[in-house]
């Protein structure tokens, strides 16, 4: 961002988002992405910034129940919408089944990609249940859970530490345990 521009007065806008069940009123520059609104304005730093260009998935959150890259959308475009971040999926005291499974399966090393992986994985399990096809679905009319489906659907979440095998195992555990 160019500093001159940052200083120039863009009229700020107000926007209300429901974040993890709580209404949040923000007055922000329209340039603020949903990712920066969450991290810098609401202090929800669980959602991570990797590339800031839709390439890594670290910023994955749910908006109105669907996973998206929060770096490639503006906060002001989400007036009145429901946002769920990793903090809303579960807490250290009440972990989401996927959070638990990631711990048990050692599905991370540095952990930077993990919030995005978990938010994405929660949606992947639902997308398969809903019958949304993927690139590896053999029969478009009959979508079944498989490791191959999970790998393909999780391809928008990169892990520099390459914890991929354990990530797949954790997702499989949750799906088999029916705890998603």
């Amino acid at each position: 961002m160019n500093s001159e521009d940052t200083a120039s007065a863009t009229p700020r806008m107000s926007v209300t988002l429901t974040v993890n069940g709580k209404d949040e009123h923000l007055t922000i520059d329209p340039r603020v992405t949903l990712l920066d609104a969450l991290r810098d304005h609401l202090g929800l730093t669980g959602t991570k910034k990797g590339c800031d260009h839709g390439q890594c998935g670290a910023c994955t959150v749910h908006v109105n129940g669907r996973r998206i890259n929060s770096c490639l959308t503006l906060a002001v475009m989400h007036e009145g919408e429901d946002v769920t971040t990793i903090e809303g999926l579960g807490t250290p005291e009440h972990m989401h089944a996927l959070q638990q499974a990631f711990v048990e399966r050692d599905a991370f090393q540095c952990g930077y990609c993990t919030p995005g992986q978990i938010c994405s994985a929660a949606a992947v399990i639902e997308e398969i249940e809903a019958g949304i096809p993927s690139h590896v679905t053999p029969d478009l009319g009959d979508v079944q859970f498989s490791d191959e489906e999970v790998r393909e659907r999780m391809s928008g979440n990169l892990c520099r530490c390459a914890a991929y095998p354990n990530i797949i195992a954790a997702i499989r555990d949750v799906r088999e345990g029916g705890k998603a």
Binding site: G54, G57, R66, R67, I68, N69, L72, T73, E127, G156
Partner: peptide, 8 residues
Amino acid sequence: ASGQLRNK
């Protein structure tokens, strides 16, 4: 693209 991108 990816699942997240296709949702948008």
